[in-house]
Every structure is written in C-alpha cells, then in structure tokens.
Design a protein around this nucleic acid. Structure first.
Lengths: 216, 216
DNA sequence: GGGTGTGAAGCCGTTCACAGCA
DNA sequence: TGCTGTGAACGGCTTCACACCC
C-alpha cells in the first residue's frame, strides 16, 4: 500500500464517522452529499476516496457499506482492538476516557498512568492506573505502541522518553511543549492554548470592521 | 497590517510562550536556537519573524524582549484582558479552565454555560455558569466575541448557532462534528478522535517493519 | 566566520475542468 | 443530464541558497 498522507487519513476517519451516522437503510451517497455533511467540497471528497479504490457510480454515487469497510481496512488494526496507553488522569485524561467510551470501539485505553499516589494501583472506569516509574515496563509487557500524553508541560518530555523506551511508535500529545521524539515515532501535538490564541486573533480581526455593533 | 497566515499566527504564539520561559537574564537569541526549542528550523523561524519587523543582528541574534513585545502587539487585545465564553463544564470544560489558569494571563474565561441544572447559577472556580438558553443574551451583554465549545456532538451545532447569534466571531470547537458557521466567523475544530486515529495508523505503520520486537 | 533577510525554487495539498460513463 | 475519476493548473508554505552585514 502506497503512502497515504496525513491529511487524507484524518479525513477518512471523519468520513467513516459521518457515514456510520447515516440512516441504516441508506445505501449510496454522492460525493457532494458527503462533502456537505463533512463541510468540505465534492472534489476533495472524490480525491480522498481515490485511495480507497472504492469506485463510485455516476448514477448512484458510492456504496456506503463498501466505503465504511474499506476505510476500516485502512485505519484499523486487522484483528480485534487496539490498545492505547493514557498518561495523566487529571481532568483532561478523564475527559479523554469519556471521549473514547463514546467513540471508535476498535480503540481502547488499556492502561493509564498517573503521578498521584491516590490514583495509582486502582481502577478508573475499569482502567488500571500505574505509577510513572512503571511506564516503559508495562508498555513493553502489553506491547502497546500508541500513547496519549495528558500531563502538565513540565512532565511531558520525561513521559515521552519513557514511552519511547517502552516501544511506543505513535504519540498524541496535549501538553503545551514541543516534544522531541526519534524519527520513527509519529507525533501529533494538540496545542490548546495556541489554537485558542489563533481563534482570539481572528475573532478580533473579524469583529473589528463592524465595530459599531452590527446587532440590531 | 497585512494578512498574517494561520500557521504563522500559531507559531508566533508558540515562540512567545517559549521565549517567556527563557532565563530572565537572557537577552538575545539566534534563529537556530529558537528553532531548536520550538522543534523547527532556522529558516522557518526567520521567515516567521519577518512579520514582526523585529530585525536580528548577525552577531547577537534577536532581542528577546523586543520579540515578546511585538508578538504581544500582534496577538493580544490592545488593552486589558480578552473575555472568552466556555460552553460545557464537563471533564473537558474543567480541563480547559485549568489550562487557562496556567496559561496566557491576557485570556480569561469570563462566563460558562452548561445544560446541567446542578451546575447552573453557581460559580465554578470563580466563573459564573448559566443555562444554555441564556447564551446569546449573555454573550451580547458581555460583548464576548470568542467562544469555546466543549459539549457533546449532538448539542454542538445548536450551541454554535446561539453563539453566532450572540455576536461571536471566533470559535474553538472540541465536539467531533463539522460545524457550520457564517463566513465571517473563524472556526478551529480540534477533533480528538481523528487525531488519535491518525496516530494509531502511523504507529502501526512504524511498528510493522520491526515486527520481531526490536527491544533487546 | 557565522548569522540574517529574502528572492527563488520546490513541494504538497486543493481546486479546476473535462472526458467518460450510467 | 449529472456525476465520477483524474490530469493539469493553482496557491500556499517550507526550504534553499546566497548577498549582505556584524
């Protein structure tokens, strides 16, 4: 299978989620319809779907079942569930646990880690929680290759290093620090403060022109 | 001031945060040094800093104070604090409150909203919480132009519409749904499940080659 | 010599536009 | 006729490369 770009993978994940929400009896969908619900364009959707090799029919559109199945083949582990490790069980960590319970059933948070002795060696919503110092050991033991970092900035690089030691190859980071990882580890950082600053900046730009309050 | 791109705004925000963490007595920094801590490249940094019109000196680098001040002029509201509204006080919402307490002091969550009558009409960490139906009213009253959506997917579009009605021009969305907003509203969506699926995908790709466990 | 500022090139992702087909 | 699949054009961002300067 050739390389599929980052962006396309992200959109395929979105398309699948949207397709799964369609009425069960719905069989086909046109690119422009999927584009509408994904807030995208028809060309973009067609381009993206090319990588699935699910071909649409000009009269009917794309077969929904086929798309869902093929996107699953691309994104999901062939077998059962994929185990993910979560480090940090603060508000953010707990929000993520809730998120996952609703979402993709193929992904499961298998183990959690926290610094707080109160949380360690207990279950949180069925997830066992261990202390930081057992990180790499337990990741190796469970053969986990994906980790989520939900700890404060100061701890993030140390946690990352332990994860890498434990054999993790993909990290989703919520700490507001640029992390250093080896070349064979894929890192996605979600920087909430930066995102918010962007929004504030553009909100201001857009609010300015109509300074004399446009609301009636 | 000419248009500054999305990406550049994001990096300026990051650069400022990193510069603020430098030792107080540090006066100058070279582009390659800033690049190292930002996990970027020297050319990228120099390109980005061009928009600030803070010029570096080949012998010394860039003056840190000047950079921080100029980035502040670009990103921050000229006067005091910028008020932000938060909708949804679940785990995610509370995590965001905590985030903001640590971060940028220029940004402050002024009001919160929740569906839960238990939370409504009380203070959470000093932030007053109102019911959903007062959203647009209160946003207008407080002249708030920036909102954060931290509610479940089902409620997100309705909340968005109310925000827009209330005069919001920038939205940071954490609900896993593509939202529809008018052209003059700037929207950033952070889709955690999609980000995680990306990470899982690439983690698998990277883990595969060394299937016969490389750890000694 | 080593770093900056910046045109120019390169790269990638998106959009256009159109032939082919149900 | 209206939609698909896709080569080609376009546009934006990043990287290169080099003249200029301390």
């Amino acid at each position: 299978m050739k390389k599929i770009s980052d962006k396309v993978i992200g959109r395929l994940s979105l398309y699948r989620r949207l397709l799964l929400q369609l009425p069960q009896n719905r069989e086909f969908i046109f690119s422009h319809e999927l584009a509408t619900i994904a807030k995208s364009t028809a060309s973009q959707v067609r381009r993206d779907l090319m990588v699935t090799h699910v071909y649409g029919n000009p009269a009917r559109g794309y077969e929904i079942k086929g798309l869902i199945a093929t996107i699953g083949q691309i994104l999901d582990q062939p077998q059962e569930q994929t185990a993910v490790a979560l480090v940090g069980l603060g508000n953010l960590g707990r929000a993520l646990v809730a998120y996952m319970e609703g979402g993709q059933p193929k992904l499961r948070i298998d183990v959690a880690f926290d610094r707080d002795p109160e949380k360690v060696d207990r279950l949180y919503r069925g997830i066992p929680c261990y202390p930081f110092h057992r990180l790499s050991e337990i990741l190796q033991e469970h053969q986990i290759v994906t980790g989520i970092i939900a700890v404060p900035a100061e701890a993030a690089q140390a946690v990352t290093d332990e994860m890498v030691l434990g054999g993790v190859k993909g990290i989703l980071n919520f700490a507001p620090v640029p992390l250093h990882v080896p070349a064979d580890v894929y890192l996605v950082s979600i920087d909430v403060m930066t995102a918010l600053e962007k929004v504030v900046y553009y909100a201001r730009q857009n609010a300015k022109p109509s300074d004399k309050r446009k609301e009636a």
